[in-house]
Design a protein around this nucleic acid. Structure first.
Lengths: 183, 183
DNA sequence: ACCTGAACACCGTTCAAGT
DNA sequence: ACCTGAACACCGTTCAAGT
């Protein structure tokens, strides 16, 4: 019943919520490229209604991820008080990369989305703060910015996604995290 | 006129070649997820003929890339004589990653293909030789194998693909290559 | 103001019919 | 042996008609 919803009709609000819930389910089951018609059907809503609420697939995707993205931002803020700035950065990046595998195939459509969605600006700011703190403490190489780290993280998330062996996933992740250290 | 083709009909051989040429063009123009119907049309062939010659999209993709993959193998063999094993590895990995961007979106469908196509076995062997030589010379960290490097390379190719700024692409690539060094 | 679903354009894949 | 393309099942997206 927030201010934002005062002017919207009750059925519209309800449809919005049911679409989000359905999308979350269907994306989880079938991946980020799941059929939009299937999502509309699961929400008990016409396909046109889905498009009215979420004009693009990406807009539906970010809406679905908003909660976990905000959690990621909060996590970053909390980590700004951690003893070791370098470790704090790495711990957060692990969570950041793990988040990019929330849905199968999410890493593939995440990069373009990173530049359009406003929530991603918050995430970027949060990551930048952690990186710069680590760099200031001499615990991360100084010749990179957070966009570099974000690009590489997307790559790691993508490449890691379909690897069966947990040991290899862990090694590749470590390879990346080690690369952030000073020389 | 190779031995392999003695038993096949002349029109079949011709169709095969025209499909390859058309696929190369269309993949180049529209990316690795281009329409197969469009490829068949460009080849002047029924869609059924395309499926007869290349039962899956991946089989058509690897057939299209076979020449450049073999060139990559030759390049690796030549580099086994290079003075610096560590540098040789990195130079080749740059070419390897660049190859994964031959078509837009190729990096996305490359990983599964890497395990199925027999030509990729050759590439893997070539890369392994370069990596192990660098490791033996103490010019690459010893706690990884070529599969680790291949996974990360796929990630770099994917993540790098859509980045506009050349400087950032270069920095991310360097970040990866640096990570292979000894500590 | 919002919802619906038929309509359209596209795609992948198969397979009966042809040569 | 090989080729063809109609047929089928699916998908994304729009928009006229309804409430």
């Amino acid at each position: 019943m927030s201010e934002l919803h005062r002017a919207t009709r009750a059925d519209a609000r309800r449809n919005h919520e049911q679409l989000l819930a359905a999308a979350n389910q269907v994306f989880t089951e079938h991946g980020a490229d799941a059929s939009l018609g299937q999502i509309a059907k699961r929400a008990g809503v016409g396909i046109g209604t889905l498009y009215r609420h979420f004009p693009t697939r990406d807009s539906l995707l970010v809406a679905t991820l908003q909660g976990s993205l905000l959690a990621l931002v909060d996590y970053a803020r909390a980590l700004l008080d951690a003893k070791s700035p370098g470790e704090a950065l790495k711990v957060w990046l692990k969570a950041y990369i793990k988040h990019a595998t929330t849905y199968r195939g999410l890493a593939v459509c995440l990069p373009p989305l990173t530049n359009s969605a406003s929530i991603c600006e918050l995430v970027k700011n949060a990551g930048t703060a952690l990186l710069e703190r680590a760099q200031a403490a001499g615990e991360a190489r100084a010749d990179i910015d957070f966009d570099d780290v974000a690009v590489m993280s997307a790559g790691v998330a993508f490449a890691t996604q379909e690897v069966k062996e947990a040991a290899r996933r862990k090694r590749v992740l470590a390879l990346f995290l080690d690369s952030l250290d000073l020389r």
